[in-house]
Amino acid sequence: MSSTLSLLPPLLAGLAVTLKITAGAAIVALVLSFAAGLARLSPRMWISFSALVYIDIFRGTSALVQLFWAYFALPLFGVRLDAMTVGILVLGLNIGAYGAEVTRGAIQSIPKGQWEAATALNFTASQAMRRIIMPQALVAMLPPFGNLLIELLKSTALVSLITLSELTFQGQVLRSATMRSAEILALTLILYFITAQLLVLFVRIAERRLTHNLDQGGIQ
């Protein structure tokens, strides 16, 4: 048992890197979700079309292929990024493409009457979006965003294949050093599981906060 515990420090060091990548990519993904989601709803064809191209490319290909392409093929164009930057950017772009569909769907799910009421009250379009539509759409976005956050955490395991020493990578290093595969990999899985459960908890608290503020607004 004590020897199993001695495996923990290097794995926890890897977990710290995993969390750093998750946090970085989550910020990139969040920004892109809103940018591309709103762009999809733009009346200007070229804006909504470029958002569609971004979304389809990143949702239509494999995250691992995207990572490999950015890490091995992109330098041949003269763009050389370190593994950490590639990991954060590519995973952020990937999850952001899924998030954009969530944002778009949530905004579209708000009844048209809300827009009309805002117009009737002399709100400008941006005021209506910020004060009326967005607060309601955010409530609908949170649960799917929570799911995407877990997907993101899981997909950080892929960056071990472009040499980033996060949790999975550390597990593999330990494994080849000690050959205690079952123990190490089980421990790795458990660490991911605990992290995921904590993230779920965190999202649920955020959800409660957000819906609480809306209670007086008369929505459900």
Binding site: L153, A157, L189
Partner: peptide, 14 residues
């Protein structure tokens, strides 16, 4: 809620 890659490793190595 755990990564497929680690599950693949688990099945392959453990």
């Amino acid at each position: 809620s755990t990564p497929l890659l680690v599950q693949v490793y688990f099945m392959f190595f453990a």
